[in-house]
Write a protein that binds this DNA or RNA. Structure first.
Length: 291
DNA sequence: CACTTGACCTGTCCGC
DNA sequence: TGCGGACAGGTCAAGT
């Protein structure tokens, strides 16, 4: 999906657009995208007002003024796009996307009292929107296992290193992608931060010293913060709450740059498979290390 | 237990 | 133009 910067960008947009909106109706024609009991939907979603839009790792949480909330995971291709009266305005930059909604990727539509709507689009149907009692949120499997986020200032380098070193025999990229170790990093920002830290993705955690891990942490934080500033990365599907694409990939150093020269040394960026994911590296700058 | 692979889906692109 | 296969930003369950 969208990784932490994309989800945070969506959250910020929705927070401005949705707070105070009263839900009037919900429509979904793909059960796995909206796996909720109709009675609960009728009693605790319809007629409720949105009070707050939060994020934890790559999950969005929309709090309602009932005791319930919506927990949303966008997975690979999910979008949450709000359409208000700009659909009818002239010259809006996103007219083309917004005017077409709902489209064939639309899985759930929430309509509000003021006639505006929130579209949950998800081409690949991996994502979901669950209505949960607020007190049960932390019983969800994802919430139970999810680790801390590096953009949280309380997560010191010591904590970061301790968490990674619980997986000494795994390659560093697989560990960065494991949400129970560190939350929010996905394929793009794993590749970007490893390039910046000059670490090859197949290097085993136990073969990295404290200096290298400290550098990796710094670079992860830099990459995540820069991407949030740029509104995230749009590779194919990702858009924010108003249908805008993110611009981070214009600044990417390796991701999707296979065949192009490394910005540091000029060698050709190559694509391989690590941890079952497409992986971009400069194999001159990023040497696989063995202790 | 630690770690890796397949499954969940649709759409697109590439080679034959 | 069609068809098969690989691949796509994520996470689980099931395998070794």
């Amino acid at each position: 999906m969208p990784e932490l910067p994309e989800v945070e960008t969506v959250r910020r947009g929705l927070s401005d657009l949705l707070e105070g909106k009263k839900v009037m109706s919900v429509k979904s024609d793909w059960h796995k995208s909206f796996p909720n009991d109709q009675r609960l939907v009728d009693n605790y979603l319809i007629g409720s007002k949105i009070t707050e839009v939060k994020r934890r790792a790559k999950v969005i949480i929309i709090n309602l003024d009932s005791d319930y909330c919506l927990m949303i995971h966008l997975k690979m291709t999910g979008q949450l796009v709000y359409v208000g009266d700009q659909r009818f305005g002239a010259g809006h930059p996103n007219d083309s996307l917004i005017a077409k909604l709902p489209d064939k990727s639309t899985r759930v539509v929430l309509t509000f009292k003021d006639k505006s709507s929130l579209y949950f689009n998800d081409q690949r149907k991996f994502g979901w929107m669950k209505l949960l009692h607020k007190s049960r949120l932390n019983d969800e499997p994802f919430m139970k296992s999810v680790g801390p986020e590096l953009i949280d200032p309380d997560i010191t380098n010591t904590i970061f290193v301790q968490r990674l070193q619980k997986r000494p025999g795994s390659n560093i990229k697989a560990v960065l992608l494991d949400q129970s170790v560190i939350a929010g990093v996905g394929n793009i920002y794993a590749d970007e931060s490893l390039w910046a830290a000059k670490i090859h993705p197949t290097t085993l955690v136990k073969d990295l010293n404290d200096t290298e891990l400290a550098t990796l942490r710094e670079e992860l934080i830099n990459v995540l913060k820069l991407s949030i500033e740029k509104g995230g990365s749009t590779d194919k599907n990702y858009v924010d709450a108003e249908g805008n694409k993110g611009s981070y990939l214009e600044f990417a150093k390796v991701f999707r740059r296979e065949g192009k020269p490394c910005y540091r040394c000029g060698s050709v960026i190559v694509k391989s498979k690590v941890a079952a994911r497409g992986t971009h590296t400069c194999n001159v700058c990023q040497i696989k290390k063995k202790a």
